[in-house]
Design a binder for these strands. Structure first.
Lengths: 335, 335
DNA sequence: CTGTTAGCGCTTTCAT
DNA sequence: ATGAAAGCGCTAACAG
C-alpha cells in the first residue's frame, strides 16, 4: 500500500498525491478531494521512513533523562510530549539511570535514529562527552534543568532559590539548618542547590552542615543518627522532594514530629507533594513548563533551520512553598 | 556521510560494509576490522530510515498510555523502556490524557510512524475503535493493565485483589467499608476493582457504599461530607493510590486520624507510597515488571514474525500491603 | 495545475 | 568472500 496505489486509484500521478499531503493549496480542490477520498478509503498514510529518507527530517525529538521514577522528570516529559505532539513531532525518550556511560550511548543511539534534535538532562554539562559530540555534529539540542554558560538551557535558578529557603527558615527562628543532598558528583542541580545553601547559611551567619547521601536508593541511617544527637538540626533543606519525603519518614520513625521538632523542605515541587496529608514544603519548579519550553525552543530553532544557542536559554520562575512541613522551631535553642 | 563513503575509504563495496554491520560472520576478519575502523573514524552509523525503508522493520515500539503524571504508568514505562533498550528497540510514548478520541489518533500516528508494534493501556478494550483498527491492520500489540478475553494482556487480577482487601478489612473489624473510585466509565481497571469491592462486600455480608469521583483532578468535597456524617465509613478502599492519598488528606483535614478513625487503602503500589511518613496501604502491582513483560511478549512475537494473541496473556501476582494507613477501627460500631 | 523522474541510504538477491 | 545493481516509498526539481 504505497503512494502509487493511491495515484492509480485516483487517476493522478504520484506527485499530485504527494502535493495533496504536503502543499494542498497547489492542487485543484476537486483533485484534492478525490485523492483524499481514495487515501482514506484504502487507508493510506505517507510512510514516515521514506519521507524522512527523502527530506532528511524525521520530525522526531530525542529526549535523554536520568529516570522516569522521579516524578520531576515524568512531569517534565509530559509537558514536553504534549508540546511536541501539538507541533507534530514524536518523541523518543531514553533514560540514563544516572550513569554517565549511558548518556553517551543514548545520544549515539538517538543520532543513529535520525532525530531532528534532542532535549537532555545531563549529569554535568561542563564535562559531558555527549554534549561535545552533539555540538560537533551540529545537531540541535536544548538542556533542561541543567545550567551552563555555553549551552542552551531551560531551568530555574536553584542557587538563588535555596539561599532564599535558608533565609526564610532562619527568619522563622531556625538556628541549625542542615542540608541533605544526593551525590553532588553526579548532578549539577545538586551542586547548584548546595551552593545556594552555603550562600544562605553564610548570609544568616550560621554554620553549614551538609549530609551527602551516597546512593540513588538512599540509605538514611546517617540521617537518623544526625537527628538523634544533641544539638541536632531543627530544619532540613533537601536537594529534592524524594529525599525530603524519605527524610521526613526517617525523622518520624526516630520519634520526631514534623514540623514541630523538625522542619523539612524539598526541591522540585512534584505534584504529589500537595496531595499528602501534610503538604510538602518545596521550591516549586514549573516542571511541565520546563519541558514545554525546551520543546518550543528546540522546535522553533528547527523550523528556522537553526541551532539553539546559549543566548536562547530561559530561566523560569520558581515559587517557595513552606507547606505544612515547615514551621518555627517549637523549642528555640538556648544561648 | 553515507555507507558509500565508508566503502570507498575502506576499499570495499557497499555490500561488504552492510554485511559487516548485519552479518559480520559472512565477512573475512581482516576486511571486517578495516571497515569497522573506518566507520568509527569517520563516525558513520547506519541510517535508520533507510534501513527501515528497505527492511520494512523499524525496531520502534509505540506506547499508548493515559498519562505520565500517575507514577503507575511512569513506573511501567520505565520497565518497558529498559527492556526495549536491552533488546535494541526504541520506544515512542504517546499519552491520551484519558480522552478516547486521542486513543484513536495516537494509534493512527504511531501506525504512520511505522512502528513494529504497540503496547497500550486503553480505556476499555471491549469497545476500543483503536484496537479494532490495530487488529484489522495485523499490527502486533499487547495491552497493559487492561484485561480482556480476546486480546493479549499483561496485568494483575484486580477483582480478586480488591475482594481480598475487603475481606482483610472486615476481619480487622471494619463494618462500614466504602469504595472511592474514579470515573468507572473511562477505565476498565476501575470497573474491575469495583466488581471486586462488590464481591468482597457481599461475601462479608455488608452493605456497599460507592463514591465515584467525577473528574481526573478529583474534587473531594463529597468525600469530606461522607466522612463527616454519622455512621460514616471506618475504612476506604480507593481504586488507585493517587485517590487514596487525596482521600487521606481530605480525611485529615476533616479532623480524622488515619488509621485510628479511618483506614485507607489504595491500589497500584506506587513506589512513593513506601517513602511517606505513613506507608500507604495498597494492592501492590509489579508495575515495572508489567511494562517489561509486555515488552518481552511483544518483541518475542515480532522476532517470531507473529502477532501476540489472547493466549499469550499473563496475569502477574499482586501483594497486599496494609501499610500504616490500615488498622483495626478504634471504636467498634455498637450493635 | 499536473506529470516524469532522479535519488535519499540502505539491504539483498544474484553473480562471480 | 566480495561486488553490481535493483528497489523500499517518498519528495522536489524540472518540464510542460
Amino acid at each position: 500500500v504505497s503512494i502509487l496505489a493511491v495515484a492509480r486509484e485516483a487517476g493522478v500521478s504520484v506527485a499530485t498525491v504527494s502535493r495533496v499531503f504536503n502543499m494542498p493549496d497547489k492542487v485543484s480542490p476537486e483533485t484534492r478531494k478525490r485523492v483524499e477520498a481514495v487515501a482514506r478509503r484504502i487507508g493510506w498514510l505517507p510512510n514516515a521512513s521514506a519521507r524522512t529518507l527523502r527530506t532528511q527530517k524525521s520530525r522526531v525529538l530525542g529526549i535523554v533523562l536520568p529516570t522516569l521514577l522521579n516524578p520531576v522528570f515524568a512531569e517534565c516529559l509530559q509537558g514536553l510530549a504534549l508540546e511536541a505532539a501539538r507541533r507534530g513531532y514524536a518523541i523518543v525518550p531514553v533514560t540514563t539511570e544516572y550513569e554517565l556511560a549511558r548518556e553517551a550511548s543514548a545520544v549515539a543511539g538517538l543520532q543513529a535514529a535520525s532525530v531532528d534534535g534532542m532535549v537532555l538532562v545531563v549529569s554535568n554539562p561542563a564535562r559531558s562527552a555527549a554534549l561535545r559530540r552533539l555540538r560537533e555534529a551540529g545537531l540541535p539540542y536544548v538542556l533542561a534543568y541543567n545550567r551552563h554558560r555555553t549551552h542552551p538551557c531551560v531551568g530555574v535558578d536553584g542557587e538563588q532559590a535555596v539561599a532564599e529557603v535558608v533565609a526564610r527558615l532562619a527568619s522563622l527562628g531556625h538556628r541549625r539548618i542542615a542540608m541533605v543532598t544526593g551525590q553532588l558528583a553526579v548532578s549539577d542541580r545538586a551542586q547548584q542547590r548546595h551552593r545556594g545553601y552555603l550562600a544562605g547559611i553564610q548570609a544568616a551567619g550560621q554554620r553549614p552542615l551538609v549530609l551527602e547521601i551516597p546512593f540513588v536508593d538512599a540509605n538514611l541511617d546517617a540521617l537518623s543518627r544526625l537527628l538523634g544527637r544533641a544539638q541536632a538540626p531543627t530544619a532540613l533543606v533537601c536537594s529534592n522532594d524524594l529525599l525530603a519525603l524519605r527524610s521526613i519518614r526517617a525523622a518520624t520513625q526516630s520519634g520526631l514530629r514534623v514540623p514541630a521538632d523538625l522542619s523539612v523542605i524539598g526541591f522540585d515541587g512534584i505534584a504529589l507533594g500537595s496531595d499528602l496529608p501534610q503538604q510538602l514544603g518545596s521550591v516549586v519548579q514549573p516542571n511541565a513548563l520546563i519541558g514545554q519550553t525546551a520543546a518550543t525552543l528546540l522546535i522553533d530553532a528547527l523550523e528556522r533551520r537553526a541551532v539553539p544557542t546559549a543566548a536562547d536559554s530561559r530561566t523560569l520562575p520558581w515559587t517557595l512553598r513552606l507547606g505544612e512541613t515547615c514551621a518555627a522551631p517549637a523549642r528555640v535553642a538556648g544561648p
